[in-house]
């Protein structure tokens, strides 16, 4: 008998039609566009160099992505403390674990997809289970590249949130990135930090001059009576921009920035969400499954705090390739899309 198997590529997706032109896919190394904000170049790399000058324990490892994670700044400043591990994420994180065992504080960098999908078991067993001070810092978190699912880490937080001992940081801007570096070094355990690299907007102090990043703390950046947005990563920038625009329409939106995803600052979240009967909206650059939204929802329900609740995040699907502004709007994480959604829920 002759067996003929033919895979049907359209079981799930309709055939795509030829394109007609439009916005161009941004380069992989592109910075996140943010109109109306100053930007800082390579805040991670420079903060790491500043801290490493006085802390000889710090070493840097990368899996062929130094230039794309701003670790090249460290490599140039401290060539003897920089380890190029090649395109080999498993040995990079294992070696980072080994160096931590010898008393170093290793920063290991790659893209978020590769750390979360490819190196997970090594991060789990060699680093997290051992509570070693390895800091895994990853570029292209969530939807920050138009290259498609191979590079879009839309579920990295869901993957890592289940891992005991691991602290997870999702910074918003250049200030968060820079101030998180010494904070996660001071933390004695392992950390996964989502990285914004290249030219990174400086957002938070423009809205809130006294803002400071504190590991494990959520910060109320602005108050408002109609809705409370609890957000992390660059979605806090979107939430602030949306709040400013909606204020002109007479809608008052509070923004609680929650850059530490785990452990979650449940005290602050419960206090803010329990204040009045505001609509509570979570906003994250991540699938709505297993990220900040579900973490907040679980916290609220467990403590009997039940305001009207909605989640803004990426849909449970593999996302399209294309230009980031197009994709952010398509998947509901642009400022305009955020405003449309919140307005509809009020």
């Amino acid at each position: 008998m002759t067996i003929q198997h033919r895979y049907d590529p359209h079981r799930k997706y309709e055939p795509r039609q030829p394109g007609t032109g439009g916005a161009k896919t941004s380069a992989m190394i592109a910075s996140l566009a943010a109109e109306g904000y100053d930007s800082v170049s390579a805040p991670f790399g420079h903060a790491l160099v500043d801290t490493a000058r006085n802390d000889p324990r710090i070493v840097g490892l990368t899996a062929d992505l130094a230039k794309y994670t701003d670790l090249h700044v460290f490599a140039e400043a401290f060539p003897d403390r920089f380890y190029q591990m090649g395109m080999a994420e498993q040995v990079m994180v294992s070696a980072a674990a080994g160096m931590a065992r010898e008393g170093f504080v290793p920063f290991a960098t790659t893209y978020a997809v590769f750390a979360s999908r490819r190196a997970y078991d090594f991060i789990a067993m060699a680093i997290a289970e051992e509570y070693l001070p390895v800091k895994i810092v990853c570029a292209l978190p969530g939807l920050t590249t138009g290259y498609g699912p191979s590079h879009q880490a839309t579920e990295d937080l869901a993957i890592f949130r289940g891992l005991p001992n691991l602290t997870i940081v999702d910074p918003c801007d250049a200030i968060d990135v820079a101030e998180a570096v010494p904070a996660i070094i001071d933390h004695p355990g392992p950390v996964y930090m989502r990285l914004l690299r290249g030219k990174v907007p400086s957002v938070l102090r423009q809205h809130c001059p006294h803002y400071k990043f504190e590991l494990g703390k959520a910060k109320l950046l602005r108050d408002g009576g109609d809705a409370l947005v609890i957000s992390s990563g660059f979605m806090t920038m979107r939430a602030l921009d949306a709040a400013v625009q909606m204020e002109r329409e007479g809608i008052s939106v509070a923004v609680l920035h929650c850059p530490t995803i785990k452990p979650l600052d449940t005290d602050t979240i419960l206090a803010e969400a329990g204040r009045g009967t505001r609509l509570v909206v979570t906003a994250e650059n991540h699938t709505v499954i297993g990220g900040l939204g579900e973490a907040v929802a679980g916290t609220l329900l467990t403590h009997g705090v039940t305001p009207p609740f909605r989640m803004i995040g990426l849909p449970d699907r593999f996302l399209d390739a294309g230009a980031l502004p197009t994709l952010h709007d398509r998947y509901g994480i642009s400022t305009d899309a955020m405003i449309r959604q919140i307005r509809g829920w009020l």
Binding site: D80, G98, M99, R101, E102, F122
Partner: peptide
């Protein structure tokens, strides 16, 4: 126990020892 991890950790320890 999660097999295939020891040698990578050994690489890191060997790098660390040399650096020290």
């Amino acid at each position: 126990g999660s097999l295939g991890q020891g040698l990578g950790i050994a690489v890191g320890m060997a790098l660390g020892l040399r650096a020290k």
